[in-house]
Design a protein around this nucleic acid. Structure first.
Lengths: 125, 125
DNA sequence: GTTGAATCTGACATCGATGTTAGCTTTTAC
DNA sequence: GTAAAAGCTAACATCGATGTCAGATTCAAC
């Protein structure tokens, strides 16, 4: 598929897709005219990349991590080095803490939203 | 307490604490000489602010939200307007999605970490 | 009063993914 | 062949919380 379709199917902008390629996170074939051609598999990969960015990893760590991930079509092409494993463990724990904090914030928001809907001046009950 | 203690007890930098105040997220009394004096309650508040920042809210939304939150010492001082409730609901749902994605990323990291520790070339089992 | 630690204000810097624009080339549909 | 749509590269802009530095003032201890 070409970049437009990948944009549509992932919700990620052209700009970002090209940036991912530049950072070594995504590869593409080229048509004779120089247009990018992506395999079906790219959709899932792009979504993974987005998730990892959202989890606070930077391009470099993601670039190191990606070859060690199990793809949809098979096992990982590389095994993480001890050094990388150490780094990823730190990230993993950070993500876990972040999840707790997010759940906290969500509960806070729920409480505020709830308090408003139960407010005697405008609530339903 | 003064700012140094608040830094120690929250892990948030002086710079950020002053920024929070400037954004209307945090109030402080002043000594006759102009130094900030925080109530005990500030510790909890600062941690909440940090969590909300981590959840992707910006200063402005947090500023609107804070007066509607239940403090440790009592009920909320304001009830969220319908407009604010609508905004917060959007954020709430976004946070929920973010939690799912983070859990995804964490599982991906676990898998990579796990694969390395079970690697026949260096694993324990 | 003196001195060192703590705090103050204000300005400038940073980081990194993403947005945006411009100008050009390729592809596609007719 | 032509025209519109899609893609390409390259460069510059942005955003917002936070870091950092400089120079001045206050506080606390002696």
């Amino acid at each position: 598929m070409r970049i437009g379709e990948l944009v549509r199917r992932t919700g990620v902008s052209e700009r970002s897709l090209r940036y991912y390629e530049q950072q070594g996170l995504l590869v593409s074939d080229r048509t004779p005219g120089g247009h990018r051609e992506y395999p079906e598999q790219a959709v899932e990969r792009v979504i993974r990349i987005q998730e990892l960015f959202a989890a606070g990893l930077n391009s470099k760590k993601i670039a190191h991590l990606l070859p060690c991930m199990r793809d949809a079509d098979g096992g990982p092409s590389e095994i993480a080095t001890p050094r990388l494993v150490a780094e990823l463990s730190v990230e993993r724990d950070r993500i876990d803490r972040m999840i707790s904090e997010l759940a906290n914030s969500r509960d806070v928001l729920d409480e505020v939203i709830n308090a408003a809907s139960h407010d005697p001046r405008r609530g339903h009950s």
